[in-house]
Design a protein around this nucleic acid. Structure first.
Lengths: 224, 224
DNA sequence: GATCCGAAAAATATCCAACTTTTTTGGATT
DNA sequence: AATCCAAAAAAGTTGGATATTTTTCGGATC
């Protein structure tokens, strides 16, 4: 069947729990540094204690949760330093991935990029003016796809995996920006158009510059 | 107490199991792509089924094991492509970390670097001529500390964490090189001396160049 | 001979309940 | 206010049991 779901979907309890926790961490329902007691989580999300422990291990691997030996888990902190650190790494990794993608650009990849930016433009329109959490989540998911598409041409599985993790870690900050109306959609759209053009024109330097601007402004860290 | 052990030691069953599995993966006792059946592992390493599952999740987070939904775990593959990918990312991450460390070099960090290279010289001597697994393991551990020390000055926790993970992923390849007598200890020692000097002389370009050479030759991927 | 199919076997994923060890907590004491 | 201690809480672990899924394998079919 076309578009059949991958086997890595929510087909296990742990995957479902992880998705639920990820969402609640992204929206700040589980707030930074909050202690994550297994029993309390079970009561809220269901699952056995083992499933919950396993879930927390998974989230710890993604950098959303911090595991401390004999002391359980807590939501990863979200300080200024955390944001700076995530942003720093994200920029470097995505810069690396994008330049590699562009260096060995294929028609298929360019097509994926165009499709991603098209979907992005649509999602941006929808989320403007909406204060609904579901819309915000969907918008953020589209942003994720766009971001990952840019590095997808690098053909480095570990880099792509890493880019995904870093994006997830930056979600909280990005959604906070959206909630506070700090996102300038007009500028954003212009940048996206310019970035798409730069990529198709194979102007690597310009593309990297525009991409960095996009990421920074999404997270409220415009340089200068 | 001085040199008191950190809380992240082998104080939990999962941590002990993870250490044992890591070692056996590094030495190829558990070989690439091998299926990791819970029952079989329990019989070999002990622990309950849950502890073992959790352990495998931990190793999956480190990139040493691959988890597939509904299909269990297997040792991460170790093909040429894997090595290239790991090497590529390791070089980029460590380059980034080292240049940052050097940019904001502190006396403490420089001291740590000197100490690390000193220990390295000693460990190199010990491992030469020894075919003992324990010696090899200890040598490799010293290499790890040296490698991590270089990026420790970057004050980017995520970068340091990542560098550690990538080093672990490259372990199998490095130990294979050692086993096959492919390591030129004389050249290695000279490079280390030069690298240490370059760092202390704050010659970033030279240091990065020498560091890349070191990593490449450790993994048998010397650039022509 | 290759392919398809379904039952049997194997392995994964999950849960429950209990138990040990470690950490945290809320006073009582100095 | 700092220290110490016992009770409570939470983490970590185990064993056993069960449902679900994947893999295996011996024919039956083309």
């Amino acid at each position: 069947m076309l578009f059949g779901k991958r086997p890595s979907d929510d087909d296990t309890v742990v995957a479902m729990l992880a998705a639920a926790l990820r969402r609640d961490i992204a929206f700040g329902h589980l707030h930074p540094d909050q202690k994550l007691k297994i029993e309390a989580l079970r009561q809220r999300y269901g699952g056995s204690n083992h499933s919950m422990r396993e879930t927390l291990r998974v989230l710890a691997a993604e950098g959303l949760v911090e595991a401390t030996s004999q002391r359980g888990f807590r939501v990863m902190s979200a300080t200024e330093q955390d944001l700076d650190d995530i942003l720093f790494l994200r920029l470097e990794i995505e810069r690396l991935g994008l330049s590699r993608s562009m260096a060995e650009a294929t028609v298929a990849w360019e097509g994926a990029v165009m499709a991603a930016f098209h979907a992005q433009r649509h999602a941006d329109k929808v989320v403007q003016g909406s204060l609904d959490d579901a819309d915000a989540l969907e918008w953020d998911e589209v942003c994720r796809v766009t971001s990952l598409t840019l590095v997808q041409g690098s053909r480095s599985p570990r880099l792509m995996d890493l880019a995904g993790k870093l994006f997830n870690q930056s979600r909280r900050f990005r959604l906070a920006q959206l909630r506070e109306g700090q996102i300038d959609f007009a500028a954003r759209d212009a940048r996206h158009k310019a970035l798409c053009d730069a990529i198709l024109a194979k102007d690597t330097a310009l593309a990297l510059e525009l991409h960095e601007e996009t990421v920074r402004s999404d997270l409220g860290r415009i340089r200068r």
